[in-house]
Design a protein around this nucleic acid. Structure first.
Lengths: 196, 196
DNA sequence: ACCTGAACACCGTTCAAGT
DNA sequence: ACCTGAACACCGTTCAAGT
């Protein structure tokens, strides 16, 4: 007996919100446009007005994911100490925690299916994420804790490590405590490697 | 007018072979059990006798992927020098090359959808992969190039790095030359970090 | 044992038509 | 502008029945 609480305005946001919840709880393969429409109390063709295709919705989700991870990292850095070790640790902790709590979202964000139309925004978002690491390394170089070298190249090992741990969080459900210790070990080795 | 070249024997192998080719060329989402059956000249229900479900076929593919990567790494190590640096480099090169050439297969192998039935074999396969890294680190410790410490913990940074570069190869299509340089940089930093 | 062929309950996408 | 409702061409899975 529900007489459309939608029909105007809110559908796009409602679809995205539901999609992210489904993604988090049941994985990306369980994401159905028709089911989303059903849950929103709307006909199967309705989503098309806001997302030309299912991939377009996934792209929007991925973009949101990038924005949130960047915000998370910046938040962690804001509350961190001033040494390179402190800042690297804060970044790594925040990233791995995000990967654990939003596995599917992150997997989706890095997924390779680029709708060339939406790619522009996505590239910009990954660039912002990349810039966080650039700043981190540059800061370390200025304070003398990281040895000299082109920042764009110097930051790669850190990114690789973060991606690697994100993959751990994604695939095997190891217990958080062990991951934490492994992460600490890895940070220690990287710090030795980065030292002047 | 084809009178069944199948009907016996070859279907399972034929399905796997076709599946891997489709996976490589069009990605995992384009993999359809029905289409595979069509290509094999067989009815839609036929695959069920060899793979109870689509996921079972994907699991078999993933298992094959693990076996091949282990064989690839062992092959690379067999032709490598004897120092830890040589062996780490050979392993990393082989892994990243495999990731570039078999992106979808590797992505599938690490994908988190575990059919608990097939998981046993998959776990064994990942264990064999993990053992290759264990040997690598232990070898380095024995030769005095890697500092002391529990091998199971010491090898984690290397695995993270490999996973990270596999993710690079998977997501962004950067040019191979740049990846190569980034990989060399990363290996150098890890070597510094691992040194006694 | 292995496969057929039809059925079932779903998809994503399209598009006239409604409001 | 936004949505409906029906259609189209697909899916994965199931299962009697055939050989």
């Amino acid at each position: 007996m529900k007489t459309g609480p939608y029909h105007h305005g809110e559908l796009r946001a409602a679809l995205l919100e539901r999609a992210e919840e489904t993604l988090r709880r049941k994985g990306p393969d369980a994401l159905s446009l028709r089911e989303l429409a059903r849950e929103a109390g709307v006909s199967p063709g309705a989503p098309r007005h806001h997302f030309k295709t299912k991939q377009a919705l996934l792209d929007a989700l991925a973009l949101d994911g990038f924005n949130r991870i960047v915000a998370t990292l910046n938040g962690a850095l804001a509350g961190a100490g001033d040494t390179f070790a402190d800042r690297l640790t804060a970044t790594a902790y925040a990233y791995v925690r995000f990967a654990r709590d939003h596995t599917a979202l992150l997997e989706l964000a890095y997924s390779s299916k680029h709708d060339p139309a939406a790619t522009e925004e996505l590239v910009a978002a990954t660039q912002r994420l990349s810039d966080v690491l650039t700043d981190l390394v540059r800061h370390g170089q200025r304070s003398g804790e990281v040895r000299e070298g082109p920042v764009e190249r110097m930051k790669v090992p850190i990114i690789a490590m973060l991606q690697g741990f994100a993959a751990f969080a994604a695939s095997r459900a190891i217990d958080a405590e062990q991951v934490q210790q492994e992460l600490d070990d890895t940070i220690a080795i990287l710090l030795r490697g980065y030292a002047p």
